[in-house]
């Protein structure tokens, strides 16, 4: 029963939505289901939040290794939640000055805005910026001309790396206009919009077919492992 009901819901909803795609009268059903999912996912936030509290409170109370990090996580979680929920320090909206809670929760000057601007933004940017370091170390370690294919890849990488900077333009700036396509910046565009695009499309077609097959397996209940196979 625990497996059968979800499987029936999955199959029924899936097939109805597929059919509705061909029937104009039922076209809005898909949007409705998306809204249902959003509502369920919104409730699931509570589940996630409760799980976060449980795991980290357990860690703190058992004084497990790294419990200090859990304390930081919980403090950050609760402060951010309360700052947003109670709109701490948020000025009322200009349209409704009499209502103290009428301002937008992310309005400039509010505590949540402060957390966003001075903690969230720099932390997110820092993590994203770490990509530069990781790309360099991965390139040094993994980019080897082990065979002909890898060598072609390597050569192409050089062209793109140079073509995306001023160095590329400078090196090939002397080429006459009749050979302008050989300038690094133009070669970069050709590589990206022809060779790269062709490969990318082939992978995308494979992925699309994989999606079709997987969806069909789920709708026909051939693959039940995502619910725990029986």
């Amino acid at each position: 029963m625990k497996r059968t009901v979800p499987l029936i819901i999955c199959s029924l909803t899936g097939f109805i939505l597929i059919i509705s795609w061909f029937l104009p009268a039922a076209e809005s059903w898909g949007e409705k289901v998306t809204h249902w999912f959003d509502i369920v996912a919104a409730f699931a936030f509570v589940l996630g939040g409760a799980n976060l509290l449980k795991i980290h409170l357990q860690k703190i109370s058992n004084r497990r290794i790294g419990w200090g990090y859990s304390a930081v996580t919980l403090t950050a979680f609760l402060v951010t939640l309360l700052a947003g929920l109670f709109k701490i320090n948020v000025n009322p909206s200009m349209n409704y000055p009499a209502y103290s809670w009428s301002g937008n929760y992310l309005d400039e000057g509010g505590l949540l805005w402060w957390i966003y601007e001075y903690l969230f933004v720099p932390l997110s940017a820092t993590l994203f910026a770490m990509l530069a370091f990781y790309i360099t170390s991965a390139a040094f370690r993994a980019f080897r001309a082990k065979n002909i294919e890898a060598s072609i890849l390597l050569f192409t990488a050089f062209l793109i790396l140079l073509g995306r900077t001023y160095a590329g333009s400078l090196i090939t700036s002397g080429l006459p206009d009749s050979l302008a396509f050989l300038r690094f910046e133009n070669l970069t565009i050709i590589i990206m919009s022809v060779f790269n695009l062709a490969g990318s499309r082939a992978i995308t077609i494979g992925i699309a077919l994989g999606v079709v097959t997987t969806s069909l397996k789920l709708l026909l209940a051939v693959d039940r492992s995502y619910l725990g196979s029986d």
Binding site: A44, L227, G228
Partner: peptide
């Protein structure tokens, strides 16, 4: 959160 629930079941 929903992925967590599903992963636990699986």
């Amino acid at each position: 959160s929903l992925v967590m629930t599903m992963a636990r079941e699986a």
